[in-house]
């Protein structure tokens, strides 16, 4: 029995030869050790029945364990040799892989989603409304005076005596305020219409993202903080932001938000007309008249609202010179952004 255990010990040393063996040597080793008749290990295993029960158990366990180790080692070496053979037999791994068609969402959809996602993180859910609106929702409830220049038929498409294609997503502010009690925090993505000829920087139809927050105790500071946070998340964490006075009938105070020009970094370039700033959105504190028009107590509740154009934002962030490219739908254009816009 001592001899057999010693023989197993010697045999174990042979395991080290396997990882270096070439194909031929590997076959020889296999035959020598595991060969059906004359294999060294085969013979040891064959001798087991002749041993006394105690020795049989001890030697048998070691021999069988060793056999499994050899089998595993031989198989591993065979796989390695086979894999290496593949390369040396002339596979050119620089040849192109097998592809599927590029597919994905339109750049504008991606930008809209990205913007809505950021506002979702800030507690805003999405709200929507119809594209055919009446004048009350599109203008009057939003505190446009009856003879405001924006009501000129030349700026809006009319489809009926008191029906027009909404010129902004702001009517959904009214619809939301009428339907839900404060606190309200919504973003309103949607399509809007202006009677502008289709050219490099104008489209008669484009997307807008409106936002509205109304609750007790909302202040100008909350307004600035929310929109500045959005800008820093959408652009970069160190993007500079500024707010400046503006005018909209449905906000007071009104403001426009600029971010540091994303093309030149703020030093001035043709895109930002040398100002170093890019206009991103119009905004302000909700005008008390708007709240009153919707039956919301404007003494108790305050809020802020804003509106921005994802096409323009997409164009400035991705360097697209002509808005019409977004509507041509050339597959070469669509494919550029199909895998994600950033």
């Amino acid at each position: 029995m001592r001899d057999l255990l010693a023989a197993l010990g010697e045999l174990r040393e042979r395991l080290k030869e396997i990882p270096q063996a070439d194909e031929r040597r590997l076959q020889d080793l296999k035959t020598e050790i595991l060969g059906r008749k004359a294999g060294t290990l085969t013979q040891i295993l064959g001798a087991l029945p002749r041993l006394d029960p105690a020795s049989k158990k001890e030697v048998g366990a070691s021999a069988n364990a060793l056999k499994r180790e050899f089998e595993t080692a031989f198989a591993a070496r065979e796989r390695a040799l086979k894999h290496a053979a593949g390369v040396v037999t002339g596979l050119d791994l620089t040849m192109p892989g097998r592809a599927a068609w590029r597919a994905g969402l339109h750049l504008v959809t991606q930008v809209v989603d990205e913007i809505c996602d950021i506002f979702r993180e800030l507690g805003f859910t999405r709200a929507v409304g119809p594209e055919v609106e009446n004048e009350r929702y599109n203008f009057f409830a939003l505190n446009f005076p009856r003879d405001h220049p924006a009501l000129d038929a030349q700026d809006s498409f009319y489809v009926g005596p008191d029906l027009l294609l909404r010129t902004h997503t702001s009517p959904v502010q009214i619809r939301t305020l009428e339907r839900y009690p404060p606190p309200i925090r919504v973003v309103i993505p949607g399509q809007v219409y202006r009677r502008d000829p289709f050219d490099a920087s104008h489209s008669p139809v484009f997307q807008q993202i409106e936002g509205l927050a109304v609750d007790e105790g909302i202040t100008f500071v909350d307004f600035k903080a929310t929109l500045a946070t959005f800008a820093r998340r959408f652009f970069t964490a160190d993007t500079r932001v500024r707010f400046r006075p503006s005018f909209f009938p449905f906000t007071e105070p009104s403001a426009e938000m600029d971010v540091q020009c994303q093309i030149c970094g703020g030093v001035g370039c043709p895109t930002c007309k040398q100002t170093g700033w890019m206009e991103i959105l119009g905004s302000g504190m909700v005008h008390p008249a708007v709240l009153d028009n919707c039956g919301v107590d404007s003494e108790r509740f305050t809020g802020f609202a804003w509106g921005m154009g994802p096409e323009r934002i997409a164009m400035s962030r991705h360097g697209i010179p002509d808005i019409r490219l977004l509507f041509e739908n050339d597959v070469r254009f669509l494919s550029q952004f199909a895998g994600g816009a950033r």
Binding site: G123, R126, A127, P181, P183, I218, K224, A225
Partner: peptide, 18 residues
């Protein structure tokens, strides 16, 4: 407008479902 702070403060979630 730039003289006002712009730090986020706590808010109540809204009543409008997505």
């Amino acid at each position: 407008y730039d003289a006002f702070p712009d730090e986020l403060r706590a808010y109540r979630p809204g009543t409008v479902p997505d």
